[in-house]
């Protein structure tokens, strides 16, 4: 599961993550600029955000290398507000 090569954990991986984050942010921006709305679009944008957060946690913060308890807090943090926000948006529509 864990690979010790450059590709997964090294600086190059972080660089790819960085570009990916830029792109996802730009997509989010486009959604806003085009004025797209509604439950599905919102949840998709939220999903992107959670994924971005997950990548920041795993790669930038380096949690991908951490085993056990401390591997999870950021992911769990993303999920709980993510679910609550989803519920609120679902109920609002």
């Amino acid at each position: 599961m864990f690979m010790y090569g450059k590709h997964i954990l090294g600086i190059r991986a972080c660089t790819w993550v960085y570009f990916f984050l830029l792109v996802l942010s730009f997509i989010t921006y486009l959604v806003g600029q085009l004025g797209l709305g509604g439950l599905e679009v919102s949840l998709l944008v939220l999903f992107f955000a959670l994924m971005k957060g997950h990548l920041v946690g795993l790669y930038f913060m380096g949690l991908v290398r951490v085993k056990g308890f401390w591997h999870w807090p950021v992911s769990i943090w993303l999920i709980i507000p993510g679910v609550l926000i989803s519920i609120a948006f679902y109920l609002a529509n």
Binding site: S25, Y29, F48, V56, I85
Partner: peptide, 19 residues
């Protein structure tokens, strides 16, 4: 610092985009 970034990554779509 990554935490500050992380929070903004959620804040941005939530407040600016999701509707």
């Amino acid at each position: 610092w990554h935490m500050v970034d992380l929070v903004w990554l959620i804040l941005f779509p939530l407040v600016y985009v999701m509707r």
